[in-house]
């Protein structure tokens, strides 16, 4: 059963998505100001994600630049029926970041990841996260949704989202079988969708 807070958050999220979609439509008509505004709305979260995955500020910057240039060039390809502009931009960001991580030599992964963790680039909805870009209801609902996940599911989902690792490596990192890791990712993501006001059957 959805709470009032969840409804408010879902409404805030929908409004935000609507605004992002409008901006993308304006960008498709070569609207420079719309591009600048979309950058202000999305850049921090995209940069945070890229940085968390590649653990290298210069690479993260390259990735975000590449993504925004793609948004400028391909804004007309955006289909609001397939998802939000944010999810689209984030998918572009993650794809590029994961490709970079998986293109690295194996031995280089361990120190890079250690560096990222030492640098405090963990998720957790802290004061340095991009949460402050969201409205109060949306940020509160997101915090609550992440906090509501059982720890093992939360760890699996965060590792799947932020690590850039493939399935077998995620399972190894979790110390579980691949089947268990897949199940935890499924359950965690479904629960997150439900907590954020998405569909639930």
């Amino acid at each position: 059963m959805k709470t009032d807070q969840t409804f408010d958050a879902a409404a805030a999220q929908a409004e935000r998505a609507h605004t992002d979609a409008d901006l993308l439509q304006r960008i498709a008509r070569d609207d420079r100001e719309a591009f600048a505004e979309l950058y202000d709305r999305l850049a921090r979260a995209l940069y945070a994600t890229a940085l968390r995955i590649v653990a290298d500020a210069t690479e993260a910057e390259d990735i975000v630049q590449d993504v925004f240039l793609s948004l400028w060039e391909k804004a007309s390809d955006f289909d609001p029926g397939r998802g939000t502009a944010f999810a689209w931009a984030l998918t572009l960001t993650r794809d590029r970041a994961v490709a970079r991580v998986r293109g690295r030599p194996r031995r280089a992964e361990a120190p890079a990841r250690a560096t990222a963790e030492e640098a405090g680039l963990k998720s957790g909805a802290g004061p340095d996260s991009a949460l402050r870009l969201l409205g109060k209801e949306h940020a509160g609902a997101l915090r609550a949704a992440v906090a509501s996940l059982p720890p093992e599911q939360r760890e699996a989902v965060e590792l799947a989202f932020f690590s850039g690792l493939a399935q077998p490596e995620i399972a190894a990192r979790l110390g579980e079988t691949p089947e268990t890791a897949r199940a935890r990712i499924r359950l965690g993501l479904l629960k997150l969708r439900e907590a954020l006001g998405g569909r639930h059957d």
């Binding site: 921090r44 940069y47 945070a48 940085l51 969201l134 932020f162």
Partner: peptide
């Protein structure tokens, strides 16, 4: 994908 994307907001990070 939408639900997962929201995790991006929880990552600690400096501004670009």
């Amino acid at each position: 994908r939408e639900a997962g994307a929201q995790l991006a907001y929880t990552a600690h990070s400096p501004s670009p």
